[in-house]
Amino acid sequence: MSESLRQYLVGEYEFVLASQSLRTNVSVVETALLASAIAGEPNAEAAYGVALSLCDEVGDAATRVLEGLQTHGQEAAAERVAMRWLSARDLNVEQPRSLLGKMQNQSGMLITRAVREAACRWAGRTGQWSMLAMAAAEEPGLYDTLSEPSIEDARRRGRSLHVERLFAEAMLQTGKTKQSLKLWERIVDDHGADDFPTLLRLAETAVSVGSVAQASTRIAAARAAALQTVKNGGGQVQSSPEVALTNLLAANLEVRQLNFDRGRALLERVVRSSRAGSDLRGRAQWMIGETFFMQEKFTEAIAAYRQVEAIGSSDQWTAAALVQAGKSFEQLGRTREATVCYSTLVSRFGDSPHAGGARRRLAAMTSSGSSAPSTIRR
């Protein structure tokens, strides 16, 4: 498409969109939206954004627009367009006489499901969780009991089950864990989602902020799905990574109730799981060390932390084990060994989130000449 034609599309957007054949031509509208956003023409951008949200039934054009804006260094424009699609505003109510409101009114939709899903996926891929969480917070009827009117409203708003999953994940990522739990429960209990990843996410959230009974129920459902997944695949049930993940959650719940021995038994099963990934096994081994640390069994904690690197391939858990081993040595008054742990962490994993704490402990030990066990925190 020539540059002169692009300029025409941007400058004469009202005339272009007055044509039924042009405003339903996905290729034309995609090109015009991209050109309008890059040119910084807000009225044309908004109008073509609405037009594409109503004519793109697949979502590919919407994805290309957002990725194309990023490619052209127009991140702010991409976020602006995505936010319009995420919010799915009813312009027929807000601006009934406007071109945008009329387009929505004529289509009977606010946005297609494909475009809204494309915007949600783009936001998730680019880490725009706060944007997604904001859209979720403003979404009408998100927690309503399923009924014909609520189902129809969700259809008009292009709110699919996948959109609700991404909303739930966004609330989890932004610290709105209780709201996330409520939405995960709706997705499972009302919509009937029974795939293992969804059940696992619900169980994780319930372990974090739900009651013990609630968390136990959700873990059991996730474990049943995990066992079925493995049986269908003909794999080894007890050593499967899916079952290992549910054991890790069950261990977390036991530790939350201060049942340390039962929690460790579950964690040891994860560590011994032959098919679980090394990162997961390393995390479980680190958690074993944490259970001993919480019980102030520092010698046992050190022994557990020392096994993390040999088990897991993740620098994350090795670094976490080094800082916790250092704290354990300090509690035992063994400052020399603590210094070795902290120094090793700083030299090997200087970019780790734990490196700052290790540097502070080293500085405190150097300035005081000894550690102060009562000040050590997890």
Score class of each variant (00 low, 15 high):
64 R>M: 06
78 A>N: 02
65 V>F: 07
33 L>E: 06
101 G>N: 01
71 T>R: 14
66 L>H: 07
81 V>G: 05
85 W>G: 06
28 V>N: 02
103 M>R: 10
76 A>Q: 06
35 A>W: 02
52 L>N: 01
94 E>C: 08
66 L>V: 09
99 L>A: 11
61 A>H: 05
99 L>W: 07
93 V>L: 15
93 V>Y: 13
29 V>T: 06
26 V>G: 14
33 L>G: 04
40 G>F: 00
74 Q>C: 05
80 R>L: 12
104 Q>P: 03
104 Q>Y: 10
84 R>M: 15
84 R>V: 08
94 E>H: 11
30 E>A: 09
90 D>H: 09
87 S>W: 13
75 E>V: 06
48 Y>M: 10
58 V>F: 01
98 S>T: 11
87 S>M: 13
68 G>M: 03
50 V>W: 09
97 R>G: 15
103 M>N: 08
73 G>V: 02
26 V>C: 09
70 Q>K: 10
36 S>G: 13
43 N>F: 01
76 A>D: 11
97 R>A: 15
24 T>L: 05
34 L>F: 01
29 V>P: 02
93 V>K: 14
79 E>H: 14
64 R>C: 12
26 V>I: 12
58 V>G: 05
101 G>C: 09
74 Q>P: 10
24 T>F: 12
48 Y>H: 00
99 L>F: 04
82 A>W: 04
78 A>P: 09
68 G>V: 07
78 A>Q: 05
69 L>C: 04
81 V>C: 07
98 S>Y: 08
61 A>T: 07
84 R>L: 12
84 R>I: 04
61 A>G: 03
47 A>Q: 06
46 A>E: 01
27 S>C: 11
32 A>W: 00
88 A>T: 15
102 K>P: 05
81 V>R: 08
74 Q>G: 01
75 E>R: 13
60 D>P: 05
52 L>D: 04
93 V>H: 14
30 E>D: 10
85 W>K: 10
58 V>C: 02
68 G>H: 03
30 E>T: 06
54 L>H: 04
75 E>T: 00
25 N>M: 14
49 G>R: 01
40 G>T: 02
46 A>N: 02
84 R>A: 08
86 L>R: 15
56 D>R: 00
44 A>L: 04
80 R>Q: 13
41 E>C: 01
39 A>M: 08
102 K>M: 03
60 D>E: 15
59 G>E: 08
36 S>V: 02
38 I>T: 14
79 E>V: 12
34 L>P: 10
46 A>Y: 00
63 T>G: 03
96 P>K: 10
74 Q>E: 03
94 E>M: 09
61 A>C: 01
61 A>M: 08
79 E>K: 09
41 E>T: 08
30 E>L: 10
93 V>T: 15
28 V>G: 05
29 V>Y: 10
